[in-house]
Design a protein around this nucleic acid. Structure first.
Length: 493
RNA sequence: GCCGGUAUAGUUCAAUGGUAGAACAGUGCACUCAUAAAGCACAAAAAAUGGUUCAAUUCCAUUUACCGGCACCA
């Protein structure tokens, strides 16, 4: 049987700073979905990468007095290291917007859109802050002054730019949304985008003068311009597949792989509307789904910021608690779609109760019984077998929740199983039964322990896409009939 | 300002036109296989006002508070 294909991607973080908790959230979630799909037999293409062009990178490299290419290379290295800390799939694909192939693909994409008549040149007025030496958007300004440089009015700069005829795509987008009622998840984000598109779209500028922004992809046929972020970066989702030359791969994963894009809520419009209009303009098929995460906030739902001192760095969490602990929190304790607070205290509570006292302790108590009584299981059901067992109830189905990207609810089912096993041990006390002089009782105890081991094995299996490291450890303990050398998750005080 | 959403226990979240459930935290009991863990029990909640209804936490309206969107921000 030919395997079905599946494509999933994150957005590309800008490479000038380390990843923050929001990036970790998006990456880990996409990773869990990718792993899940693989486990149920899909041929998965999982994409991520780095956005490496733009004026900010140019400036930062100059500030640090290093070559721009070296600067982005370092950034990419840091990025890859951090992905390891988040426990990302080994077979993840990386795309860098400075890749030669990507640059060529972006240019080809531009040409197609241009050939179709959706690109034109016109005068563009930008607001420029002399203090920051960069352009400002209206939302960054108050009274025509940028916040970092009060007292200096922004200057208006006129330049010729290329524009994309976004305005021509309003009805097409609305028609597409109509036909794909689950295009953006969750639905309230979808409603926002629909409302935005209904209000009418304005053409937007897609190039900058090379003299002002030297670090970018050249506009085909015009030496004086480079692409602005949209055509430069969004095109990565298909360039990563080898588009345009590799038609086979493109067909397999983009046309037939239900391309799914994870992003943070600040990105909804670009993924859900702009990129989709660009695809239509290039005669290419649309994405299949856009999944939008909420933001990670500080205590009380306030924004994380250095000045408030409420920033939690994912790297700190990993070095103190481990990769799977971070994943556990991001996948289970952070709201699936709404904004959610991440504080050290909240994290520690969840870690202790869910991982140390819950999963970790259960593994210890079951494996101790298994080892000291030399009891093993003989069958090791596959992920799909276990999935079926956990889908018996029509309403509560592990896979249904995952397919709806409600990973938290799926994980809740696993922890329900943890609680169940703990309860069974307490009630039937197999540890006592096996010691009984009465042969019938001791046999009964053995049987119960066997069932507990199998139950633990189910848990480990279901955790494969969620906590891959821990899942592997537990499966190994069961297969080798060993107690954990050290607690799986040491309780923290 | 306009449009949308939310308001439930200390906290994070459920369900529901007719006794409001859970998890974590708290208190107590008790067990000993386990990471002083787990188990049992207890305590604890509907923003305000009005309306519809035999009955409203649920439906409607108003008020208040908070959140999100309202374009060139990855």
């Amino acid at each position: 049987m030919k395997k079905e294909s599946f494509y999933i991607t994150t957005t590309l973080p800008y490479v000038n700073a380390p990843l923050h908790m929001g990036h970790a959230l998006e990456l880990v979630r996409a990773d869990a979905i990718a792993r899940y799909k693989k486990l149920i037999g899909y041929d998965v293409f999982f994409n991520t990468g780095t956005d490496e062009h733009g004026i900010k990178i140019y400036q930062k490299a100059k500030e640090n007095e290093i070559e721009i290419q070296d600067f982005v290379d370092q950034g990419f290295d840091t990025f890859k290291k951090q992905l390891k800390m988040f426990g990302m799939s080994d077979d993840i694909h990386f795309v860098r917007t400075t890749d030669k192939h990507h640059e060529a693909a972006a240019q080809e994409f531009w040409k197609k859109v241009n050939d179709n008549g959706y690109i034109y040149k016109k005068n563009y007025e930008t607001k420029y802050c002399i203090g920051c030496e960069s352009e400002k958007t209206d939302s960054e300004l108050e009274d025509d002054e940028c916040r970092d440089h009060p007292g200096i009015k922004v200057s208006i700069i006129n330049e010729e730019n290329y524009f994309f005829k976004y305005s021509a795509f309003g009805d097409k987008l609305l028609g597409f949304y109509e036909k794909n009622p689950d295009f953006i998840v969750p639905d309230f984000r979808f409603n926002e985008i629909k409302a935005f598109v209904k209000k009418g779209l304005q053409d937007f500028s897609i190039s900058r003068l090379k003299s002002k922004m030297p670090w970018g992809i050249a506009v085909p046929g015009d030496e004086d311009h480079v692409m602005y972020v949209w055509f430069d970066a969004l095109t990565n989702y298909i360039s990563t597949l080898g588009w345009p030359e590799d038609t086979e791969q493109f067909k397999k994963y983009w046309e037939n792989g239900n391309p799914t894009q994870y992003c943070g809520k600040d990105n909804t419009r670009f993924q859900g509307a702009m990129w989709q209009a660009m695809l239509i303009a290039a005669d290419l098929p649309n994405s299949h789904q856009v999944v939008v995460d909420g933001f990670i906030t500080g205590e009380g739902g306030v924004r994380m910021s250095k000045t408030l001192g409420n920033v939690v760095d994912p790297r700190e969490i990993v070095s103190e608690y481990g990769t799977d602990a971070l994943r556990y929190f991001l996948l289970r304790e952070v709201g699936s779609f709404e904004d959610s607070p991440f504080t050290l205290e909240r994290f520690k509570d969840a870690y202790n109760s869910g991982l140390a006292n819950g999963l970790g302790n259960l593994s210890s108590r079951i494996m101790t019984m298994a080892v000291s009584n030399n009891i093993t299981i003989s069958e090791f059901p596959s992920f799909e077998d276990v999935l079926e067992i956990f889908s018996e109830d029509e309403e509560i189905q592990f896979h249904k929740y995952i397919e709806k990207f409600d990973i938290k609810k799926a994980i809740d089912l696993v922890w329900f199983q943890v609680q169940l096993l703990d309860g069974i041990i307490q009630k039937s006390q197999p540890f006592k039964l096996v010691k009984s002089e009465n042969l019938e009782d001791s046999e009964k105890g053995k049987k119960q322990i066997e069932e507990l081991i199998l139950g633990l094995y189910y848990i480990a299996k279901l955790l494969e896409p969620i906590l891959p490291e821990t899942s592997k450890k537990i499966q190994q303990l069961i297969k080798e009939n060993k107690k954990p050398d050290a607690p799986l998750f040491l309780r923290k005080e």
